[in-house]
Nucleic acid binder design. Structure first.
Length: 481
RNA sequence: GGCGGCAUAGCCAAGAGGCUAAGGCGACGGUCUGCAAAACCGUUAUUCCCCGGUUCAAGUCCGGGUGCCGCCUCCA
């Protein structure tokens, strides 16, 4: 398996710290608003690599934090007249709703800054003691000049960083590139007691403290969006390696941006779409498909037409799964041969290629392409054969289940069974009976060659999202994606 | 100013020296169907932004252009 490491700017063979185990830390959201599509990309992507590691037999420890102490949360709390912790709590809950919709599993742990003040203060104390940090009027700053490797992740020297600095320099800092580890409390702001007085942590220290607490030095993968490379991750490295004297993280993985009309989607530009808004019009798994249909390091331009195309593509995969499941029902009595048919051999080949795609720096776009190739293979097989061996069909559905266990494009039930119709009430027995009744009436009309009545029922149902298909074996209905 | 990325069909997109340039969406023609839908078959890039170069061989490597974007400031 090869992973592109931002630190070395090249793909490297993945060698975990501990055999058979992977430790991953992903920077999670600051909890002052609903997440937008740009936040969803790393969520879905890192969820996917986690799934892949699990499928490859790794024991995965996956940590994603919530930054629940931050200037923007405080600002919001002033605006709304609510306690900052209430704002955070609300958006953490809303985060989970979006993540669930996108089929993103919970991390093993979602640590919050507010719950780790002890670790943060301890870490700052160590940095002061080792003379990597200094205090000015209740603020603690990291002294960039004390850490010679500063800049190794973003590949620039402190001088370069200075040369391009567009930011107003805080006169209390020794060096303009120094950054705050601890900020003295200002009036009305939430604060915690520390050896340096009341205050709160700076932006970067929490990820260092929490990742080291849960994963330890030298953990495997640290991830996030490309805009975190500098300064956030650069500063994390400086703090952590200065404090521990050891390598902080082995592989740095950064996803590219979502753009809108080629411009970065960002909160500051105001050109963002909340996941919440998109889900009003689109299936959440269509959004997941869209996010995985481009390699994670490439920019991904968003518009609703592209989401439509993703929905169509997903529908095609879904149809193939349904066709296959029906065939399995139908051919359940056919005796199982223990042989390896050509069909099974080509399925194995597809699985191999799928894994090769994922092994090559998580090429989900290629992997999805292979899923489509499998769909064509399966559909053709289903079309061409009237008598089928159940072993072949089972092998095919297992392949689909495997692809899906990695990509998460469809929800699954307890035994890994596909749950394809997700809309509310689809399994409501009243809805079922009403549709059965309509279909019966339509069938009677068809028998009488009353095509206009039959077609009226079909088009009427289509308008409310129910697709009717007449097959040689009778009518079939399903919900559209 | 410094650092970095990208440019492949109508659209999206894989592809990192060598069989006929994956796959999807869309479009068109066909099979099936009462008509549809789904599915299948066929067509849709003699060519990968432009110009040079290296090589027996280049979207793929090198040099030079052009265009777009990002980071250097809170941002995934």
């Amino acid at each position: 398996m090869e992973i592109y490491n931002t630190l070395t700017r090249q793909k490297e063979k993945f060698i975990p710290r501990e055999d058979g185990k992977v430790s991953i830390y992903v920077c999670g959201p600051t909890t002052y608003n609903y997440i937008h599509l740009g936040n969803a990309r790393p969520l879905v992507f890192f969820d996917t690599i986690r799934r892949y590691f699990v499928q490859q037999g790794f024991q995965v420890k996956y940590i994603q934090n919530f930054t629940d102490i931050d200037d923007k949360i405080i600002k919001r709390s002033f605006e709304e007249g609510l306690d900052a912790s209430i704002i955070s709590q609300k958006y953490i809950e809303e985060y989970y709703r979006d993540a669930d919709a996108l089929n993103v599993a919970r991390a093993n742990c979602h640590p919050r800054v507010s719950g780790h003040m002890k670790e943060i203060i301890e870490m700052i104390a160590v940095l002061i003691e080792k003379r990597f940090a200094y205090a000015v009027e209740g603020n603690i700053y990291f002294d960039v000049s004390s850490f010679p490797e500063y800049g190794k992740l973003s590949h620039r020297s402190s001088d370069e960083i200075l040369a391009g600095a567009r930011v107003e320099v805080d006169p209390r800092k020794k060096n303009p590139a120094d950054f705050a580890l601890w900020k003295a409390a200002r009036k009305g702001e939430p604060f915690w007691e520390s050896p340096w007085g009341a205050g709160r942590p700076g932006w970067h220290i929490e990820c260092s403290a929490m990742s080291l607490k849960y994963l330890g030095s030298g953990f495997d993968i640290h991830g996030g969006g490309m805009d975190l490379i500098f300064p956030h991750h650069e500063n994390e490295i400086a703090q952590s390696e200065a404090a521990t004297g050891k390598l902080f993280a082995r592989y740095w993985v950064h996803n590219g941006f979502i753009t809108i009309n080629q411009d970065k989607m960002s909160k500051s530009l105001g050109n963002f779409f909340l996941v919440r808004e998109i889900l009003e019009k689109f299936n959440s798994l269509t959004v997941r498909f869209f996010l995985l249909s481009t390699h994670y390091r490439s920019p991904l331009d968003f518009d609703f037409e592209k989401l439509d195309a993703s929905g169509q593509g997903l529908e095609r995969l879904k149809n193939s799964i349904e066709l296959l499941e029906e065939a399995i029902q139908k051919h359940s009595s056919v005796a199982i041969k223990e042989n390896d048919s050509d069909f099974q051999a080509s399925l194995s080949e597809l699985k191999k290629r799928f894994n090769q795609a994922m092994d090559d720096d998580f090429n989900t776009a290629l992997a999805i392409g292979i899923f489509f190739e499998a769909a064509k293979e399966v559909n053709t097989f289903l079309n061409q054969n009237t008598v089928m061996d159940k072993a072949d069909l089972v092998k095919a559905i297992e392949l689909y289940a495997y692809f899906n266990s990695v990509l998460g494009l469809f929800k699954t039930g307890p035994e890994g069974k596909f749950i394809l119709d997700e809309k509310p009430h689809a399994d409501d027995s009243l809805v079922q009976s009403l549709i059965e009744l309509l279909l019966k009436v339509r069938q009677e009309a068809r028998t009488k060659k009353d095509w206009s009545t039959a077609d009226r029922i079909r088009s009427g149902l289509k308008e409310i999202g129910i697709i009717i298909e007449d097959t040689p074996d009778g009518v079939r209905w399903k919900l559209s994606i």
